[in-house]
Design a protein around this nucleic acid. Structure first.
Length: 457
RNA sequence: GUGGUUGUAGCUCAGCUGGUUAGAGCGCCUGAUUGUGGUUCAGGAGGUCGCCGGUUCGAACCCGGUCUUCCACCCCA
């Protein structure tokens, strides 16, 4: 019992059914990405630490898995440093590589590194696992997949419009109706902070505001006070707490509130273009909703911010997110390249589809027929038929051992293989096969061509 | 990183205020059925009670530590 092997906290094994279902989601997303003109790239599982560290804030650094150097890594740590016991300092000496934390920063690195080979605007998608040294909880793992699509090298708002459509297309194909695509704009948040005189506390302000639907108006105010945002500022913020109505009404209210802020008004204009355009083009099943409290933690967003919420009844938080970042590649020394991207949270989408029972009855990847093994002579006869069936594209297999028939039948039963084929001495003499339908129990003696015909259905 | 929670047979779980050989259902194996699975019947195997230490005459049960599960917070997909 204690010796039973296990996997690390927050990681998972996937059984055949789970892999099939995950591939189904992957395929829908990939097809749609391709349909919208995105091309796949892949980057390594681990990067140089300096590529990742400091890109996700202090909290992010803590959650990055560091890889220990090879060899006698401790010999490079002098006694003084060692005795200080400062983990952060020592880490830089004993670890120079780290596991990928998301796909966006490695993508930025990729763009800067390969800028001479890339034709801009560059539209790429990437589906790979990422790792976070987080504590697992519902829908949160330490190893999980991200599915990202990004465009760099264009500031056009048409990209944002397309991403909204892309979200709608994917979730419609997956049968997940009524997802809400929430949209906001970092410029609006900055504008509000400016208007209420708290521009120096933009991050604290947005993080608190983001929690509105979770901790309520009083909770948000309490947190803002704790971050020493003034009462005067809170007073000016009051309209935000009762922000309701259609996207149009919200836009009007925002223009009124932000008329003194040039940056804020720019944000309103951007939001208005996206919302109005989507309104004209229409969406299939999703709805686009302006949400001024949407902030998202990532510091690098500068324009639009997206977040997709699962239908309310499943209580799963966000199943996707994204936004525009004007200066992502700037951190790698390539300024003034604007990017915008979105991400799908595969693992959470899986949980949602499962909870709502939305996985289609997938085409079985199972064998169509199991040939019973009666011994080497008979098995050869069976194998000839199996080879022909496989050449005809029909999944078939031979039970490898000539054990008791009951066991072989039981195996077919447990694996849900719909047909068994009996080919023993009698059948060989007659050049026939006994085909048994495992569901009905009916069996008939058939020739090879009849066998192939019946299994082909 | 903080707080709580969970761990007993392959799986899902019982196990009383600490008391002798720790149970059930399902699954598994064998046989009834030597060319027939899914049903039925009879029998059988399988657990140092997560791990380490402590209290006690005695620990699955109490205490401490550790790992794990799940949940919330921080943060995030």
């Amino acid at each position: 019992m204690s010796k039973k092997p296990s996997i690390p906290k927050g990681t998972r094994d996937f059984n055949p059914e789970e892999v099939t279902r995950r591939n189904y989601i992957f395929n829908v997303i990939k097809e749609t990405f391709a349909l919208y003109g995105f091309q796949p790239i892949e980057t390594p599982s681990f990067e140089n630490s300096e590529t990742l560290m400091g890109k996700y804030g202090e909290e992010g650094d803590r959650l990055i898995f560091k890889i220990l150097n090879s060899g006698d890594f401790l010999s490079k740590v002098d006694d003084k440093l060692y005795s200080e016991k400062d983990s952060n300092k020592i880490t830089t000496k004993i670890s120079e590589k780290a596991l990928r934390y998301d796909l966006t920063v490695p993508f930025a690195r990729y763009v800067v590194q390969h800028q001479n080979q890339i034709t801009f605007p560059f539209k790429r998608y990437q589906i790979q696992p990422v790792w976070r040294a987080d504590r697992p909880q519902k829908g949160r793992f330490r190893e999980f997949f991200q599915c990202d699509a990004d465009v760099v090298g264009s500031t056009s708002l048409w990209q944002e419009v397309e991403f909204v459509q892309l979200y709608d297309a994917v979730f419609t194909k997956l049968g997940l109706k009524d997802v809400t695509i929430k949209i906001n704009n970092r410029k609006i948040l900055s504008g509000i902070a400016e208007t209420i005189g708290a521009e120096d506390k933009l991050i604290d302000f947005t993080v608190a505001l983001d929690k509105l639907d979770k901790i309520g108006e009083d909770g948000v105010k309490k947190e803002m006070r704790e971050k020493s945002i003034s009462e005067d500022a809170l007073q000016k913020l009051q309209p935000l707490f009762s922000f309701k109505g259609s996207n149009d009404e919200k836009l009007n209210a925002l223009s009124e509130m932000l008329k003194t802020s040039e940056l804020g008004m720019k944000g309103v204009e951007e939001l208005e273009f996206i919302a109005k355009t989507i309104e004209k083009l229409g969406l299939q099943t999703a709805s686009l909703q302006i949400d001024v409290t949407l902030a998202r933690g990532l510091n690098y967003y500068t324009g639009a911010i997206f977040e997709v919420s699962a239908p309310a009844e499943v209580n799963m938080g966000s199943i996707g997110g994204g936004g525009r970042y004007d200066d992502l590649t700037g951190i790698f020394g390539m300024p003034n390249i604007s990017g915008v991207g979105i991400s799908f949270g595969l693992d959470r989408i899986y949980l949602v589809l499962e909870e709502l029972n939305l996985f289609p009855k997938t085409v079985s990847e199972n064998s169509k027929a199991l040939f019973i093994n009666f011994g080497n002579k008979e098995a050869l006869y069976a194998m000839e038929a199996i080879t022909n069936l496989r050449n005809a594209g029909i999944k078939a297999e031979l039970y490898p051992d000539d054990t008791k028939m009951g066991k072989q039948m039981g195996y077919a039963d447990k694996r849900n293989i719909p047909f068994t084929v009996l080919a023993g001495e009698k059948e060989m003499e007659a050049q026939q096969y006994t085909l048994k339908d495992m569901k009905s129990g009916a069996q008939s003696s058939v020739s090879y061509s009849e066998l192939e015909k019946m299994l082909a259905q």
